[in-house]
C-alpha cells in the first residue's frame, strides 16, 4: 500500500478512459458492457457474457487482450471437448535421449481466456475451469501448475439455444465475478458497425497497459475507502436477497429460491470501488453499489417457479430489492 502514490490513484481513471477509447475503435456501442468488463478485470474477476451470437462478444474480448497487451486464447466449447483439451496434458516425447512425458499446456495457459459458449461443454470440462478461475492454477497428473498473471476467464453463453447444452452449476456460476448481458446495438450503432466491418479493417488499437500495470491498478482500486454507511447498505442489499431473512424484500420472498453468497457481497464492494475510481472519485457512493448490483448479483440469485410463471427475470427482482433497501 505504501508503494501506491497519489499520481497512480489519480491516473487510474485516465488509464481506464484510454482503454475504453481504444476498445471503442473496434467495438461500436456496448459502452456499458465494456465498462462492466473492465470493472471485472480491474477487480481481478472472471466474467460470464450472455448474449445471442453475433453481438461482438468474441471481438470485445480479443480487443481487450490487444489493448492490454495480454496473451489471449479462445476456446470453443463443444460437447466433446475434454478437460485435457483446455488444461493441457502430458504427452510422450521421443528424442535422442529416449521417450519421456512432457506437459503440453492447454489454452488455459494465457492471460485472457475466452471460453466461447461455455454451456455447450459437459460439466466435466466446465469443472476443469473451476480451479483455473478460482485458484489461478491447473493440476494435471498430480502436478499443479500456476497460470500466468493477470489471469481472466471471459466466458460466453447463448441464452436462446438451450438444447444440447449443460447449464452451469451454481457453484461454478458463483466463481464468475460478473455476469454481463450483451444487448442488441441500436440503429445508429448498427450503421457504424456495418461501416467499419464491411470494408477493409484498417483501424489499429494501441496497447495501453501491460500485465504488471494491470496488477498494479487492481491493487490501487482495492484500497479505495468506503464509508460504513455505504458498506452497510451493500450488505443489507445482500441480506435482502435472502428469502428466509426477516428483512428480505417482498420480491425476494416471493420470487427467489436462494439469495447471494458472501462472495456476492465481496464482489459488490470490490466492483463499486473500481467504479468509483473510474468515475474519478476516491470514495464509494451508494450509486456505485446500485450500478454494479445487477452484473454482480444476477447469476447469484436463483428464481423460483413463481417467478418463471409470472415472467419475472432476475433483473426485475434486483431492481425491487434495490428499491426496498434504504440508504
Amino acid at each position: 500500500m505504501n508503494s501506491i502514490t497519489s499520481e497512480e490513484i489519480r491516473d487510474f481513471s485516465k488509464t481506464v478512459e484510454k482503454i475504453e477509447g481504444e476498445i471503442g475503435k473496434k467495438i461500436i456501442g456496448q459502452k456499458k458492457v465494456i465498462r462492466e468488463v473492465l470493472i471485472a478485470i480491474f477487480s481481478g474477476g472472471n466474467v460470464l457474457l450472455e448474449g445471442v451470437p453475433g453481438l461482438g462478444k468474441t471481438r470485445l474480448v480479443r480487443t481487450i487482450g490487444e489493448v492490454m497487451d495480454l496473451k489471449f486464447r479462445r476456446i470453443q466449447f463443444t460437447p466433446d471437448l475434454m478437460p485435457a483439451d483446455i488444461t493441457g496434458t502430458n504427452i510422450v516425447m521421443k528424442d535422442e535421449r529416449g521417450s519421456r512425458f512432457e506437459f503440453q499446456p492447454g489454452p488455459l495457459f494465457s492471460n485472457i481466456v475466452l471460453a466461447d459458449e461455455i454451456n455447450r461443454a459437459t460439466p466435466k470440462t466446465q469443472s476443469a475451469l473451476l480451479e483455473a478461475m478460482g485458484e489461478g492454477t491447473v493440476t494435471v497428473g498430480g502436478v499443479t501448475r500456476k497460470l500466468p498473471s493477470p489471469y481472466f476467464v471471459l466466458a460466453t453463453q447463448n441464452p436462446l439455444e438451450q438444447e444440447g447444452t449443460y447449464p452451469l452449476p451454481e457453484a461454478q456460476m458463483d466463481r464468475f465475478f460478473f455476469k454481463i448481458e450483451v444487448d442488441y446495438p441500436s440503429l445508429d450503432e448498427l450503421h457504424r458497425i456495418i461501416d467499419i466491418t464491411t470494408v477493409e479493417d484498417t483501424s489499429k488499437t494501441e496497447k495501453i497497459v501491460e500485465g504488471d500495470e494491470i496488477l498494479k491498478l487492481q491493487k490501487v482500486a482495492m484500497n479505495i475507502p468506503i464509508a460504513k454507511a455505504v458498506q452497510d447498505y451493500a450488505l443489507r442489499l445482500i441480506l435482502g436477497t435472502h428469502p428466509e431473512n426477516p428483512n428480505a424484500s417482498e420480491a425476494a420472498v416471493k420470487y427467489l429460491r436462494y439469495g447471494s453468497s458472501p462472495r456476492g457481497a465481496q464482489t459488490l464492494i470490490q466492483a463499486a470501488k473500481v467504479r468509483a475510481l473510474i468515475e474519478g472519485r476516491y470514495n464509494v457512493a451508494f450509486s456505485d453499489i446500485r450500478e454494479v448490483a445487477h452484473p454482480a448479483l444476477r447469476h447469484r440469485l436463483f428464481l423460483n417457479f413463481e417467478a418463471m410463471a409470472d415472467d419475472i427475470n432476475v433483473d426485475n427482482v434486483i431492481d425491487e430489492i434495490i428499491g426496498s433497501i434504504e440508504e
Binding site: 500500500m1 490513484i9 475507502p225 464509508a227 454507511a229 455505504v230 470514495n283 457512493a285 451508494f286
Partner: peptide, 25 residues
C-alpha cells in the same frame, strides 16, 4: 456529493494517501 462528505468525516483522522486525496476532493 456522492458520499464524499461522510467518507471524509470517517477518514478525518486518517493520513494515508487515499484519505488525503479523498479529503482534498
Amino acid at each position: 456529493l456522492e458520499e464524499r462528505v461522510m467518507t471524509a468525516l470517517e477518514l478525518e483522522d486518517n493520513r494515508d494517501v487515499y484519505a488525503n486525496m479523498q479529503r482534498i476532493d
